[in-house]
């Protein structure tokens, strides 16, 4: 166990030495990997911000159930009971036709309605959902349409739907982009490790003659690829932070003109670890392929 740790420390030191031994190449690789990672990482964080912003602006997504004026109190109670028991809803409130009329009058529209003798407004339930999935909206409104006493259902989901679709599209684009850039990253590591193997050819062959196992020979290369990935990840993290810092002020100004307070959130601890972790994983993948391809089949 102790020896295993020692061997890893040695491999780690070797990898560091090799990275430091060619500072320009290391810097270049870190930048290439960093830039390749910045696009998807920054994109996701921006999307996160937009999604959060959208939720803030729209408030909670709502469905309005307008009741038939002929609905009796038993039907209204039954609807109330249904709403109370549905776990997909987060809240609901009843707006009686009198309340609605008062609200309308106080809003200054009363004059328009002044001439009408009877209240034309229906009783209504305003329902708030948990989550903003368009499918949830569709399923719920379909169900509620069938309840006795419900005359009309109004979703304010149209734009939620559109926004969700738009975000989904953006997410898919980011995903495709991430996969492509991930592949690019693997190729970059593959190639730098290939060059390392060529540079270390003599040391590898001598080690083999002295009885080194494949594992022993591979170990420093895995550290090398992983460290390079980590460097790339850190560059990406830095770039994302700089990007958010640069965007924060102009975006806040835009928000101000609409009377909205917008604070761009950078990657948190979890996101940061994920970005660096992903970079390390991709570095390892590139190393694994390269080692398999270039170290194999030589006695």
């Amino acid at each position: 166990m102790l020896n295993w740790i020692y061997l890893h420390l040695r491999a780690f030191a070797l990898a560091l030495e090799r990275l430091a031994g060619q500072p320009f190449g290391t810097l270049l690789s870190a930048l290439v990997m960093g830039i390749a990672l910045t696009l998807p990482a920054g994109g996701y964080i921006l999307l996160d911000n937009v999604a959060m912003l959208a939720r803030g602006v729209s408030g909670k997504p709502e469905i309005s159930l307008f009741l038939d004026n002929k609905a009796d109190s038993g039907q209204i109670d039954a609807i109330r009971q249904n709403l109370r028991e549905d776990p997909r809803l987060s809240a609901f409130r009843f707006v009686s036709r009198d309340e609605a009329l008062k609200h309308l009058e106080s809003s200054g529209l009363g004059d328009v309605l002044g001439g009408i003798a009877t209240n034309p407004l229906p009783n209504a339930f305003i329902v708030t959902l948990r989550g903003d999935k368009p499918e949830l909206f569709a399923a719920l409104s379909e169900e509620m349409r069938g309840w006795p006493g419900v005359e009309h259902i109004q979703l304010d989901s149209a734009w939620v739907k559109r926004l969700a679709a738009l975000l989904e599209l953006a997410r898919m684009t980011m995903l495709v982009l991430s996969v492509l850039l991930g592949v690019a990253l693997v190729i970059v590591t593959f190639n730098t490790v290939r060059l390392q193997i060529l540079t270390q050819k003599n040391e590898i062959e001598v080690s083999r003659l002295l009885g080194a196992t494949d594992r022993f020979i591979r170990r420093p290369f895995y550290w090398f690829g992983g460290l390079q990935g980590a460097l790339g990840g850190l560059v990406a993290l830095g770039a994302v932070w700089i990007g958010i810092d640069t965007l924060a002020a102009p975006v806040a100004k835009v928000g101000e003109t609409y009377g909205v307070l917008i604070v761009l959130a950078g990657p948190g601890w979890r996101e940061s670890l994920m970005i660096v972790g992903l970079a390390i994983a991709l570095g390892w993948l590139g190393t694994a392929i390269s080692v398999r391809r270039h170290l194999w089949g030589r006695p």
Binding site: E203, E205, V206, R208, L209, G211
Partner: peptide, 19 residues
């Protein structure tokens, strides 16, 4: 093979040092 070689001390014609 590695375990075989660990039991054999080798001096080849080319010294094969790490220069």
């Amino acid at each position: 093979i590695p375990y075989l070689r660990r039991n054999i001390g080798l001096v080849l014609q080319e010294t094969r040092l790490l220069f």
